[in-house]
Structures are given as structure tokens and as C-alpha cells.
Design a protein around this nucleic acid. Structure first.
Lengths: 320, 320
DNA sequence: CGACATTGTGAATCCGCAG
DNA sequence: CCTGCGGATTCACAATGTC
């Protein structure tokens, strides 16, 4: 009961009840093993829970060979308070993101996540409101269709981070189809499993009403590293730097000459250095490795500019 | 390696390594069972971990009969980034708070937690900086004494929430004694178990010095950013004002003492006054309301400084 | 001495293609 | 499946250095 003696409409469904830990662990192990069997190598698994169950789920995941990539905290802007003053307000839920195994090459749209976060790397804590208002599905009498409907914003971030348009997303506990609605919106294919007919009907109507993006290309947010690779030699070939030009590190401590084939010649106290732009930078700086594109600069008047801007000029043409 | 090719000084200690899940599960079960055997009925257990281990710990807790009360998310203001752009930045750790069993009448200082949070119920996600600066223990060569030293502010909130002065706190993985230092500061008794002699020596010296801790530098005023709410209790929790400190109005007509939960005790001709910083200021000034942040001042040598400068220090971190 | 710029660092299961 | 190697990758804060 709330302090004003109104009743809290909590979760009272049969699907949320289990005999004991052992029964729940068996159930969890079964569905996770089945999911793992069909998970594509580049796919990954997301599961959400609260402190009541998420620790058992996480341990079972690990026992099955899944490799945990992150645990993600959904911080609720508007959680239900603790009415009795007996604990901390339970203001979050925990998601686990895992790949099939340790060496799986899972998808992660790093740059899309960074862009979504004002060009700062996305963190493991996500602040999002619970599902309410017009988004919350209700029957004719105003009763909520599903007791734990998730906000679409949560699934948006999940799907955008770890899948690409045309991928297929499976949600084995589909409920009222939040996963399907967002998948359709983002141009992902989806499969939903649900045994409650009321939920299925609500999900179908809801997803039918979702409009797909008119231009599918806006949904594709590939990682930058799949952008066309621009070898340094192209910069010379295209005349953006001439053979014989001097390159410097940012503080003018190292200097090297550009050769016609895009290799460099540098010399300093450590000796002479010839080779690729990366090799010479690393050798002259005394480092095991070096990204020449960020290390070397060219003179523009009295200023030094990173050579990377030259690569971007070629890349913008290449992708056009 | 970081992008600039410097090396990350990660955790490489033997005590952090286990053969396999089974070995770790046995270890976990053993110490948790031992802790549960001696846990007082009104006591509770706190354990912290990351996604690598916390799910196994939580499941083991439940299997042993512990009753989980909350999982608490320590959100770091300044986590280490993900340098390779392969995952979400791992910006939090998870704590589990549990009583001995389902029906235990555990301690919970609900009002202290609420007071610490500016009269809003404390949530399950806590935003606190990692341990750095002067608080971080280092050897003569500047190397950190312990790879995973926790911030005192984190333990402050833990101990203040679920124990009382005179209670005894046991930390079976004492490290450099953050638990002991905060326990001493808060008038709790403590027992620390630690097998590494270097850690023990550092902890002993640290705790011996707790009372003589010099007043933290309060003079810098970092830039004002968009204004997240900073409850007054956080200033106490973070050690910027110690419990027992006297506060004054600008003309020293009123005086009040700071309590451990951020509430004040004041007394004047109108009588005794206890409550939040706002309530006590209003009562003592004979006003209907009062902004404690502008009303109260603290002594810095012979000068009085408004306590608001302390809030600004925390705000600059919280806006992250 | 203050303002501003540069450098260092923190619990991290942290690459991927070609040969 | 293994090896070699090109080249892509960081946020907040404290400490130190410079003007």
C-alpha cells in the first residue's frame, strides 16, 4: 500500500513465479542454451533483470560459455519510491550484454553510440524514463496491457549499439513487442516468441502501426573503421603532399622527409629511419607502435596541421 | 595500452586471480558462509564487485540464505575510458546489500539517508568519484599502495546507512583499511582481516592518523556548470565538513553543529533546533524559510566562508 | 601569485585482416 | 588455426609546468 492507502499494482502474473531457485535456474539455463545455439558469431545477447534474478542469470550465462561484455545499468528517471522507508529506492535495472564466447567478433557500433552521447564515449549507465504516457499500452478500461512494458528508448539504444539494418533480432519473451516495434523502426528483422495471446494481439497491432524509415540509408551507422581505408601514399599520389616535403611531430622534435612512394626518411639521435609513416614515427619516438596519421604534421605557413585532414579530403571523395 | 601508447597500470595481483569459476565459487561460498555465521541479526552484509564476478557472488549469497535488500550502483564520475572503442565505458561497480535471512530485522537509517540526499529518498544509484588525489595512498616512489583503493565517501554512505555508532564492522578483505578509517571517523568499531603485510602497515598508519586529518583544501572554486542538485549531506560525506563542525550565520549571531547525516543541531534564545540545514536556519532566524547554502558559513582560520563554495566543488564533478 | 597549458593516470575480462 | 603487422583508439580530474 502507498502512504495514502491506495494499492500498488505490482506484478502478479504466473510467468513471474517459480517454485524455488533450482527451478528458476533450470528454466534460465534451458532458454539461454537454446539462444546460444542459434546465436550468430557476430551477434550478441542482451538480458534484463533486477536484483531478484539477475545474479542467477549472469552466473548461468558464464557457466554456459557466454562472454560478458558489459553490464549496463538502466537508471530510471522516475522509479517507484520505496513507500515503507525500509530500503533504498530501487531506481535501476541491470542488463547484461554478452557475446557467444570469449573470441566472438561481436558487432558494436561504437561511433553511433558516441554520436548518440554528444561525442562522448557511451558509458555503462543509461538514464532513461520508464514507459508511461502515450507509449504505455492500455486496454479499453485503461488498465495496462502488460505489467512490465519496457520503454522503446531502451531497446533503441540496445539495437542501435549491437546490430545493423537487415540483421535479425530474436526476443524469446516478446510480451507486447517493444523489441519488434523498435526493430521495425530501425530496419532490423525480428522474431518474437510469446505464449500469452493477449500480449501477442497487442504486439501485432502495435508493430503494424509502426512506420518504417522512408530512406533505409539513414539507419545504417557503420563503425568508422569500416570506412574506406586511405593509404598514406595516396596523399602523395594525389599531390596533397609533394615528395621532399618535411613532416614534423606536434612539437617539432622529430622531422622526416616524404618520399615518392609514401615512405619516409627521418633521422635523429637514434639514427636514420626509413619505412612506412607508422614505422618511422614509432622508431623516432622510441615507441613500439605509432599512428602516423595523428603523429605527423605538415607546415601550412607558420602553422603545423595534422596530415589526417588530407586523408579526410580523399575519403570524402571516395565515399561520394 | 592507451592511444598514446602509455601503459595502463591494471590489477595484476595474485589475490585477484582464480583457476576457474569453480574455484572462485568455492572461495566465495566459504567466506560468505563464515560471514553469515557471525552476522548479528540486526546486521547486514555489503559486497562490491564488477561484472566479472558480482553475478556469481549474488547467486552464492542467495543460495546460502542471505536475503538481498538492494543492489546499489556506484556510478563513477571519472572512470577509466574504454581505450579501444570496443565496448561501453565500464563506468560503475555493483554493490549488493543483504540481510542474514528473509525475516531479519536489519538496521537501516532511512532518515539519515534521506537527510544526506536533501530530504529526497536515497536511490539505488550513487554518484561518487573514484579514489584519487591526496586520499590515494602511495609509496615513496609515488606508486599506488593498493590497486583498487575505494573512496572513503563510498564507505561513509555504506556505514552511515546500515550501522550505528558503537556497532562493529568486519571487513574480511581489509586492504589499506578504507573501511576502518571511515568506521573510526563515524564512531563505529571495526575488525579488519588482511594477509598482505604492506597493506596492513599502510592501513594501520592511515587509521592512526584519522583524527589528525588536515582540513581539505576548500579554497578552489571550479567553474560553474549546469546545476545538478547537491544535497548538503554530500559535503559531509565527502569529508569537506566533518561531523561536529560549527556553522555560523554571516554575523555569528547563530551557531549550529553538523551531524553525521548532514542535519544540524542549533540552539539559541528560541530554543533547540534539529533538522535539515534549511529547517534549522529558518527556525533560528525566525523566518518561514531559509536557504541554508547562503545562510550558513564555516570557519577557515579567523574567516567565515559560505558553505556554498563546498557545494560547487562537488557540483563540478556531478555534472559529468 | 594567478591564469592557463601540458602531462599523467585510474579494477580493462579492450583489434582484425591478410597470408 | 596461427602469425605478423597495419593502424585505430580516451574521459575526468589532479599534478605539474609556463607565462
Amino acid at each position: 500500500m502507498r502512504p495514502n492507502h491506495s494499492k500498488v499494482d505490482g506484478v502478479e502474473e504466473d510467468w513471474d513465479k517459480f517454485e524455488d531457485f533450482e527451478t528458476y535456474d533450470h528454466f534460465t539455463r534451458d532458454w539461454l542454451a537454446a539462444a546460444r545455439r542459434i546465436l550468430k558469431p557476430e551477434g550478441s545477447l542482451w538480458v534484463i533483470g533486477s536484483y531478484h534474478n539477475i545474479f542467477r542469470v549472469g552466473a548461468t550465462l558464464q557457466n554456459l560459455g557466454f562472454w560478458i561484455l558489459n553490464d549496463i545499468i538502466w537508471r530510471k528517471t522516475n522509479p517507484m519510491p520505496n513507500f515503507r522507508g525500509t530500503r533504498f529506492a530501487n531506481a535501476h535495472e541491470t542488463m547484461i550484454w554478452a557475446s557467444r564466447d570469449k573470441d566472438a567478433r561481436y558487432r558494436f557500433n561504437y561511433d553511433a553510440m558516441k554520436a548518440l552521447n554528444d561525442d562522448l564515449q557511451m558509458r555503462s549507465d543509461w538514464l532513461l524514463p520508464i514507459c508511461s504516457g502515450g507509449e504505455r499500452l492500455r486496454d479499453e478500461d485503461g488498465r495496462k496491457t502488460h505489467p512490465t512494458q519496457k520503454p522503446e528508448s531502451l531497446l533503441y539504444r540496445v539495437l542501435l549499439s549491437s546490430s545493423r539494418p537487415g540483421d535479425t533480432v530474436l526476443d524469446p519473451f516478446f510480451g507486447t513487442g517493444t523489441t519488434g516495434a523498435v526493430a521495425k523502426r530501425l530496419g532490423r528483422n525480428w522474431i518474437g516468441l510469446e505464449r500469452d495471446d493477449t500480449y501477442v494481439k497487442a504486439a501485432q497491432a502495435r508493430i503494424d502501426a509502426v512506420e518504417e524509415a522512408p530512406d533505409p540509408s539513414v539507419l545504417d551507422t557503420p563503425p568508422k573503421r569500416s570506412a574506406p581505408r586511405i593509404p598514406f601514399g595516396w596523399v602523395v599520389e594525389r599531390g596533397l603532399l609533394r615528395p621532399g616535403t618535411s613532416l614534423f611531430d606536434q612539437r617539432r622534435l622529430n622531422r622526416a622527409l616524404v618520399r615518392a612512394d609514401g615512405t619516409l626518411i627521418g633521422s635523429n639521435a637514434r639514427g636514420d629511419h626509413r619505412g612506412s609513416i607508422h614505422q618511422v614515427g614509432a622508431a623516432m619516438a622510441g615507441l613500439p607502435a605509432c599512428n602516423g596519421w595523428t603523429f605527423w604534421h605538415y607546415e601550412d605557413g607558420d602553422d603545423l596541421r595534422p596530415i589526417d585532414v588530407l586523408r579526410e579530403r580523399i575519403r570524402s571523395e571516395a565515399s561520394a
